[in-house]
Design a binder for these strands. Structure first.
Length: 689
DNA sequence: TTTAACAAATTTTTT
DNA sequence: ATTTGTTAAA
């Protein structure tokens, strides 16, 4: 079973009686270790449902579940493999009543929270609300409540944010809603304050494995410790050199604390890399070298020296994009990895993608921009989710407001404002207020009539939805609902073009299909594949949707070049990688915040260095690093400076390069003929709405 | 003073 | 892509 594991991996897999820290360098097979350890535990007689493997993203959880299934077969299905947040939801759904949460609470997404923040703080613009949101989220992630935040506030801005946080907390309780941060902090509170619940989970879970441990924040670590309990059967898998999320609360302190909190900790370092050539790893090791080491390690591979890392000096952004196009076209004829999907262009900031998109379209190279708007961020999907959330939790006011105005049904701003103040003064949720006896005193007869009509419809829907189980019933239910509310017409009436409305409707249908599949049972797929799964009620499925974000479907196996930020590229790999815009100021990013202490500045630089390291280690076969000799600044061009990280890569030969323009002309002539042949591909490169 | 049009600038993202 | 800032016209 453990065939094909190297000695360090094997050691990590076999260490099952105490705490361990697996320092898994980039490409060293960390998912292999986690999945093999799960299989090893199961084969050793451990009940699968006593093992938990925790990840940060749904995608990582799905991949892990898939690979565990391959290794351990059906037994792996019982393993709790989920994200931190999904684990939090499970805890709160099961035992949230202990801390005053009702069973069917709602989960707010960031846009819902922004709206509430505006309301709590009296702001009209999103930017201000997001600043409060940011500050409040940071406090929550440090385990502080509003009162503690207010006490700790050191300036006027912080004090006002803390005051708003107080109002926001009240609002969440009134709405019986939680935000994403609460999905960690409330379970932590639950386990801290209720011994019985804590003991239940500590007995239930025998082994806890954590992926990307370096990305955990303070509250996540505290939660982990409580879940793991005194036996300390924790497997933390991570890489301090790939810690790039300090700005959102992740802290390497969690790595430093581990040997202190768990004196028995077994530290295992995975240094053999199965991804990249030696030339690439040498550059990576050199770049990360200057950072202080928590646990020293040096990556190596036996894949051979490989192509030297190329450094490309470009005149400006447009020129850089042209050079990347030329490189892709050239490698597509000479390399063994010549599909478009074998290439990625990585950069520091999202806006850098624009120039590449333009150049790729011109050259008819199909591409995708990763980290674009997710399916669930689309307005039409959020509309539907709001309706569904309202069914599950009538007191979910943000969902109520969205549903009652979508589509427009003669209930306008005035009515809703009146309803809102009526609800607030009686401490009702909006939905409760709507059916209150005294509502006639606050609103006009006509308004009350419209509100009641809406309320009755929601009640009726809810009553029917309780009985809905299995895919086909769920689909039929949702289709009749969409027709009831006239949603398709609503999309057509929108200001969008007809084409856009049709695209939105397609998304709606995809959503319906996807939801019904999750309701399980057996459903005929278009390909004639039948899916088998446990039947769930529609209400159960709805409760989980706020947590889900990835439907990659069609985007999965497309043969396209990837454009991505360095952050979004973590965990991924490509045969050919270009790091673009590797200039001083961009990477490392220049901060003009002079309130930072020298220590804080040094830490920022360390994280930028890790970002460069992550970028380099994405490459399997070839790596090119390009930088700009001139950058646009207003109407004039200013001199650009190569990133300090480039000379630090310790390349033998960074100066030999042809005149870029000459090379480009030659390549253009060579590929002019082929361009026509890929016209079809270009159609696919049209940006999706 | 307000509005419209245009130009410029923009850190990183998941749940 | 979105949003903020600038300039010119009304």
């Amino acid at each position: 079973m453990s065939a094909g594991l190297n000695s360090a991996q094997l050691e990590a897999v076999n260490h099952v009686h105490g705490p361990s820290l697996v320092l898994a360098g980039a490409g060293s097979g960390k998912t292999r270790v986690i999945t093999h350890k799960i299989a090893h535990l199961i084969n050793g007689g451990m009940s699968a449902n006593r093992i938990a493997a925790i990840t940060f993203t749904n995608k990582a959880a799905a991949e892990m579940r898939e690979r565990a299934k391959q290794l351990a077969g059906r037994g792996a299905a019982e393993v709790l493999i989920c994200t931190f947040h999904a684990l939090g939801v499970r805890l709160l759904r099961q035992q949230g009543t202990y801390i005053g949460l009702k069973e069917q609470f709602s989960i707010l997404d960031t846009d819902d929270v922004t709206k509430i923040m505006k309301d709590c703080g009296g702001a009209t613009d999103n930017a201000t609300a997001r600043q409060w949101q940011w500050a409040i989220s940071a406090w929550k992630n440090q385990g502080l409540n509003a009162a503690q935040a207010l006490a700790a506030a050191s300036n006027e801005d912080e004090r006002s944010s803390a005051v708003i946080m107080g109002r926001y907390e009240e609002r969440l309780i009134a709405y019986q809603s939680v935000d994403f941060d609460d999905l960690i902090s409330l379970p932590l509170k639950l386990l801290t304050e209720h011994d019985a619940v804590r003991q239940h989970w500590q007995q239930q879970l025998s082994h806890v494995l954590v992926d990307e441990y370096q990305d955990t924040n303070a509250t996540q670590y505290e939660l982990l410790k409580l879940l793991v309990g005194p036996r300390g059967r924790l497997t933390a898998v991570g890489d301090d050199d790939q810690s790039i999320y300090g700005w959102r609360g992740a802290t390497l302190d969690n790595l430093k604390k581990l040997p202190v909190d768990y004196p028995e900790l077994k530290v295992i370092t995975l240094e053999q890399n199965y991804r990249s050539t030696s030339a690439i790893l040498k550059a990576a090791n050199n770049v990360i070298g200057p950072n202080p080491k928590l646990f020293p390690k040096t990556l190596w591979s036996d894949l051979g020296e490989g192509e030297p890392v190329r450094v490309v000096a470009c005149d400006n952004e447009d020129h850089e994009a042209e050079r990347v196009v030329a490189r892709i076209q050239s490698l597509r004829t000479t390399s063994a990895h010549k599909a478009f999907k074998d290439f990625a262009v990585l950069y520091r900031a999202n806006h850098q993608a624009r120039v590449f998109e333009k150049a790729f379209r011109k050259a008819q190279i199909p591409y995708k921009v990763s980290g674009g708007q997710s399916f669930f961020d689309r307005a039409e999907i959020k509309d539907l989710c709001a309706w569904l959330r309202l069914l599950v939790n009538n007191d979910d006011d943000p969902a109520f407001l969205r549903a009652i105005t979508t589509p427009k049904r003669g209930i306008g701003h005035t009515t809703l404002t009146q309803l809102g103040s009526f609800a607030t003064s009686h401490k009702f949720s909006l939905f409760e207020a709507l059916f209150a006896n005294s509502i006639g005193s606050a609103l006009s007869v006509r308004a009350v009539g419209s509100l009641h009509e809406f309320g009755r419809y929601v009640n009726d829907m809810e009553y029917r939805a309780r009985r809905i189980q299995g895919a086909e019933a769920a689909k039929a239910f949702m289709l009749s609902w969409l027709s009831d509310i006239g949603y398709q017409q609503h999309l057509m009436d929108g200001e969008d073009s007809e084409k856009l409305a049709a695209a939105r409707w397609t998304n709606v249908m995809d959503f319906v299909d996807w939801m019904s599949k999750r309701c399980g049972g057996t459903i005929d797929d278009t390909a004639g594949v039948t899916m088998e799964s446990e039947k769930k009620t529609l209400l159960e499925v709805i409760q989980t949707i706020a947590l889900l974000s990835t439907i990659s479907e069609r985007e999965q196996d497309q043969d396209v070049v990837t454009l991505s930020t360095l952050h979004a590229a973590k965990g991924l790999e490509w045969p050919h990688v270009v790091l673009a815009g590797v200039n001083e100021g961009l990477l490392p990013f220049k901060t003009d915040d002079d309130s930072l202490t020298p220590e804080a500045l040094a830490q920022r630089l360390e994280e930028e260095r890790r970002l460069m390291y992550v970028g380099i280690t994405r490459a399997q076969r070839t790596l090119a690093v390009s930088w700009l000799m001139r950058r646009k600044k207003g109407r004039e061009m200013i001199a650009g400076k190569v990133s300090r990280f480039v000379p630090e890569m310790g390349l033998d030969d960074t100066t030999t390069r042809e005149d870029p323009r000459e090379k480009l002309r030659a390549l253009r002539a060579e590929f002019a003929a082929k361009a026509a042949a890929s016209a079809q591909l270009a159609a696919d490169a049209e940006p999706l709405a």
